[in-house]
Design a protein around this nucleic acid. Sequence first.
DNA 1: TATTTGACTTGATGTGAATCAACGTTCGGT
DNA 2: ACCGAACGTTGATTCACATCAAGTCAAATA
Lengths: 250, 250
Amino acid sequence: MENSQIIAQTSDKHCTHDIKVSCGSCRLNTICMPVSLHIDDIDQLNKIIQRGRPLHKGEYLYRAGDPFTAVYAIRSGAVKALTISDSGNEQVTGFYLPGEVVGLDGLANNTHTNSVIALETSSICEIPFNRLEEVSMQLPKLQRHFLQLMSREITQEQQIISLLGKSSAEARIASLLLSISTRNSSRSLSSTQFLLPMSRTDIGNYLGLTIETVSRTFARLQKARVISVDKKEVSINDIAGLQQLAKGAE
Amino acid sequence: MENSQIIAQTSDKHCTHDIKVSCGSCRLNTICMPVSLHIDDIDQLNKIIQRGRPLHKGEYLYRAGDPFTAVYAIRSGAVKALTISDSGNEQVTGFYLPGEVVGLDGLANNTHTNSVIALETSSICEIPFNRLEEVSMQLPKLQRHFLQLMSREITQEQQIISLLGKSSAEARIASLLLSISTRNSSRSLSSTQFLLPMSRTDIGNYLGLTIETVSRTFARLQKARVISVDKKEVSINDIAGLQQLAKGAE
DNA sequence: TATTTGACTTGATGTGAATCAACGTTCGGT
DNA sequence: ACCGAACGTTGATTCACATCAAGTCAAATA
């Protein structure tokens, strides 16, 4: 196994362009493809993964309609996925943070139904799907993991559906913040202080709220001393309180 | 291939209990597992599928928390899937009609996150997952089909998310009716006249509306001569109009 | 047949978020 | 350093849907 240890930077400024990290040494490998693989299995996985140049803010990873050829693991940065609904509106369908995998929407018809756009400069691992399928044939665990990724996506979306159907603006925002908090802590980042990678507009679109309501809700949560917000910087002062709000408490 | 041709009845009253239909002769096989398989492949698939006794209205196919062992194809009748959200509310996550497959929610954690309940007397094909996995190893097409089923579930849910985030009560109801209409026609049933298998309460829960709003919206659509409703019986008088409403037109 | 029960409808009123509008702030480009 | 555009905040008003409340209807039970 090669010994390259260049860890991708979260900061835009010092982002390393010449990225060579093996899956074995990537600090995200417990999230991205957390399969207990033998060393040569990892090697095999490693060989098929391509690491591209960083994607800059606003650039597309792929567009709705593009042929489906690969799935993508976020290595650093953040992206949003969105579809154009029947009514012609953009709908943000998800935010993806380092260690998470996008692109599964393409499987149904061999065509992506979502577009994915970088929210900040991001580095991405491309995993060609036909190669992944081949390797999976020999590694049932990898196969299974892949199904689990999809299944998890389904259950997550069901939570969003419940959120949109039944919850107040406050509960929606609280849930989003808690979701990001949890995902940060699983990457050993702070669960109480972080930068939101997405705009208010994106948040509103994702949660089915107008930008004004998002803004007011942040203000309200801050006045209630549950969080502090300054622009994109959020700190959670009262997690328990936020969880109550997410559940719809007064 | 055996020649049993007992077709499951949609009607509750004459439902055949002693069901023996092979996948090869099932009239739903173009929807359920539309894989172009050789005859012996179908035979192989056929062997692993278990056909249970019919499930009566209100009975559970499985419950949230049950271990994941199988996926299920609806052969006749209809079921609803629901989760208990964090806030403790029931959330109907989907309705499943003949030819459609439920149970994919269990893959993420080897445990079902949804419960599935019969809306009317239904017969169900149980497809044990470990056997399916084995067979898939030898039949890449089946493997691929299965991934497509999941991917389709994801994209469908994204449409619901968009619906709940951005659309009026009218658009939501219109979309649901169109969805059922489309799915009916793919089973060669009428796309303009059908019985709703679910209650107003279920519809409201699914679409994030109160039962009163569901009722009033049906009434409004009827007054606008777009549909006719009598209890559970719906006929669509103006599909184009309904499509406009689903898109959010005035 | 009377009686309860659950599913649905219809009307009157209240409210949370959308809309409309104005203004402040940050950022990218020259 | 300046400018315009995009992003964000805050306030006043409106509106679609929720809530509250009564009542209808059909099937289930006794």
